[in-house]
């Protein structure tokens, strides 16, 4: 078989294949629910209701979407320039460490001064964590996929070391957790009484800023050029190495904001499980959004909804919660295939 480029894909083609991909994901989810002995239609209903059926559920979904918007943006920015950052998990924890370091009393400043300093320091830490693999890639040609993946394990062990050593909460009854942030360091709720913190608003602002950078600045143009064709970019006089390093700083900083927002907004302290794989899930978020920064917001809310809905369904119907991960992996694979099929026609023989 061969692939032929479709010059002007019809509307049916551009919408049809992605819809089939989504349908396939839902069908697979139903089959899995049946396999687990539950009623498939009831299961899907429970997922939807658990994700968006009440004000509480909806806010829970938005809360869960917040770190995913940050990590999704981090991955989208990097992948756009063909920098394969699989290390958003490590950068997230780096941001969380700095947030705890500055927010637990080291700086007794008013909130208005403390927040930007904490966020800035967190971004710097995340940026530096990704700068390592990016420099190795540009300078020595070391594949960043493997180095960023391996760094995730190193940073997580480092966090574990901190939480059992210098950063351990003396009042924590022996649990590996950090002390709680001081009141000035916490991000308040957007509306009093509703469980949604300002981290969500920050995530939306971040998405808008990234969109402006990508669409309206020289750096954004250079990042796209490097991603589309490195040789051509070099030939056109774009400093490819430097653009990759700048992309790495931006991407790592964005992922670190997820750690800042989770610690300062949601949890109030650092534990080893503040991220159940938000860094990896960011890859799904970014790919489903076709690497578009504004699309990341939508797809992060969708992905968060699947997780929150599946959690609540799992409690009610007894279907293992891993069904959410299976459905998202299927959505990822079928969606990249669907996108390819909108642009290419399969010719047999």
């Amino acid at each position: 078989m061969r692939l032929e480029t479709v010059a002007n894909p019809s509307l049916a083609r551009t919408l049809g294949f992605p819809l089939i991909a989504l349908a396939a994901t839902v069908v697979l989810g139903s089959l899995l629910a049946m396999l687990a002995g539950a009623d498939p239609f009831a299961t899907l209903g429970l997922i939807v209701r658990g994700a968006a059926g009440s004000q509480f559920a909806l806010l829970e979904t938005l809360n869960r979407a917040t770190p995913l918007i940050f990590t999704g943006l981090a991955v989208a920015v990097a992948f756009r320039a063909r920098l394969w950052n699989i290390g958003a998990e490590a950068q997230l924890y780096a941001g969380a460490i700095l947030t705890v370091l500055l927010g637990t009393g080291a700086l007794e400043w008013p909130s208005a001064a403390l927040w930007p300093v904490m966020a800035g320091a967190a971004m710097l830490a995340g940026a530096l964590v990704l700068l390592g693999p990016a420099v190795l890639k540009v300078r020595f040609g070391v594949d960043e996929v493997v180095t960023t993946l391996l760094f995730n394990f190193v940073v997580l062990l480092f966090v574990s070391m901190l939480l059992e050593g210098p950063m351990k909460d003396p009042m924590g009854m022996g649990w590996p957790q950090s002390p709680r942030l001081i009141a000035e360091a916490r991000l308040p709720r957007i509306v009093d009484g509703l469980r949604l913190h300002w981290g969500f608003a920050l995530a939306i602002i971040a998405a808008l800023i990234v969109w402006v950078i990508e669409a309206r600045t020289t750096l954004g143009y250079e990042m796209r050029a490097v991603g589309l064709n490195r040789q051509a970019a070099e030939f056109a006089g774009i400093p490819v190495g430097r653009v990759i390093l700048k992309t790495a700083l931006l991407s790592g900083g964005l992922a670190a904001l997820a750690g800042f927002s989770e610690v300062a907004g949601l949890k109030g302290n650092l534990t080893l499980d503040i991220s159940p794989g938000f860094g990896y899930t960011g890859i799904i978020v970014a790919m489903l959004a076709l690497l578009n920064p504004l699309g990341v917001v939508v797809s992060a809310i969708f992905v968060a909804g699947v997780f929150v809905g599946a959690d609540s369904m799992s409690r009610a119907a007894g279907v293992p919660t891993y069904i959410a991960d299976i459905m998202l992996a299927t959505a990822l694979l079928t969606m990249v295939l669907a996108i390819a099929l909108t642009r290419f026609r399969v010719r047999w023989g």
Binding site: I284, Y322, I326, V336
Partner: peptide, 20 residues
Amino acid sequence: LSQHVVGLGITLLATSATYF
């Protein structure tokens, strides 16, 4: 399709299907 994306997708799929 992108070998990076598909590979990571397979890792996620195989891991979660196994745990399920």
